[in-house]
Amino acid sequence: MPILPGAESFQADGGDVAVLLLHGFTGTPQSLRDWAEHHAAAGLTVRLPRLPGHGTTWQECNRTRWQDWYSCAERELLALARDHTVVVAGMSNGGALALRLAQEHPDEVAGLVLVNPAVLLEDPRLVALPVLRHLVPSLPGIADDIRKEGRHELAYDRTPLHALWSMTHLWRAVRGDLSRVTQPILLLRSAVDHVVPASSSAAVLAGVTSRDVREVVLPDSYHVATLDHDAPRVLEASLEHVRRVTAGAARDEVTA
């Protein structure tokens, strides 16, 4: 299946600290590419995979399930963790996948950076989704929720409903296990988000048991904050968080 131009994965090899970046549902690595390149330029090892079913066609995405996306992210994490201290970062559903990795692999995830993490929606149509997905294959897309003029998110123009239905099961699992998340968290939330409600971030913050948690509200961005006015703030705050939460691990390795 041909990959859309610009939707390719990104990787860079740097130091002993690594960041695994996970893009959102129906999106592509393009939405996080600036973030990845920024951290790579700072000397970090970076992995930004293209999740299965993404960056090709929405019909292919409809043939994937959340376990496929998670397995891809998990493989990247475990490969990195063999030789690196790893922080996992994600936007939207990528945030849900990051949280799941932290729940399932607490020793391999040193910290989390979450941008508008999606673990629930308030759309009443979700009630009908188990039936609706068998009647229509897709609904209009959710891409390009960006306040800044001239920026574009490379994503599907349709929302595949079988895949969406599966994603809600991921969210249910993540919400049920939020107390297992103990890692330091930086959560960046847009003040206005037309895709994921503020209650999703609130649920994350209320459910985790991490003692090191910082929430930053982004005043001038919509959902795709990594391509919006507040993108520089996201990148700098993320880099500071990564350096801070991995500094102790680096010192321990040197001492050992």
Rank of each mutant, 00 (worst) to 15 (best):
P160A: 15
L139N: 01
V86N: 09
H84G: 10
R63W: 05
H223C: 00
S210A: 04
G150W: 08
S9P: 03
T159F: 05
S199H: 03
D230T: 02
R100A: 15
E240A: 14
L44S: 05
L51T: 01
M91W: 15
D193M: 09
D13A: 14
S179Q: 06
H84A: 11
E149D: 13
L161K: 01
Y222K: 06
H169Y: 14
D220S: 06
V181R: 09
S31Q: 12
V131P: 08
L32M: 13
L21S: 02
A98T: 12
R151C: 09
D252A: 15
L129H: 04
G90R: 06
P52C: 10
N93Q: 14
W35P: 00
R75D: 12
W165P: 05
G6C: 10
A12E: 06
S190Q: 07
L114P: 10
L205A: 12
E108F: 05
S199P: 03
A225M: 02
G55K: 10
S92C: 02
L164C: 07
V254N: 05
V136I: 15
F10H: 09
Y70C: 13
D68N: 13
L218M: 04
H23A: 01
G150F: 05
H241W: 02
E74D: 09
R147H: 10
D68G: 09
L239I: 00
R214P: 04
G14A: 06
S210N: 00
R125T: 07
H162V: 12
L161Y: 01
Q59E: 13
Q67R: 11
D220A: 11
H169L: 14
D144F: 08
W69S: 14
L186I: 05
E104C: 14
R47T: 14
L188A: 08
R151F: 00
V234Q: 03
G176S: 05
T28R: 02
A143D: 03
L132Y: 10
H229I: 15
E108P: 05
L170S: 09
H162S: 06
N93R: 13
G141C: 03
R251Y: 11
T56F: 08
M1N: 08
D157K: 11
G24H: 00
A118R: 00
V181F: 06
A163K: 11
W66K: 00
H223T: 00
P2I: 15
P5Q: 13
A163P: 04
L187T: 01
V224F: 11
D220I: 00
S199L: 05
V224Y: 12
Y222D: 04
T45C: 14
T182E: 10
E122P: 11
Q30R: 06
E253K: 12
V245C: 07
H54K: 07
V242L: 01
V131S: 09
A118V: 07
D107H: 09
R243S: 13
R180C: 06
M1T: 09
L78D: 08
S221F: 04
K148P: 01
P137F: 09
D193C: 14
S199V: 10
A173I: 07
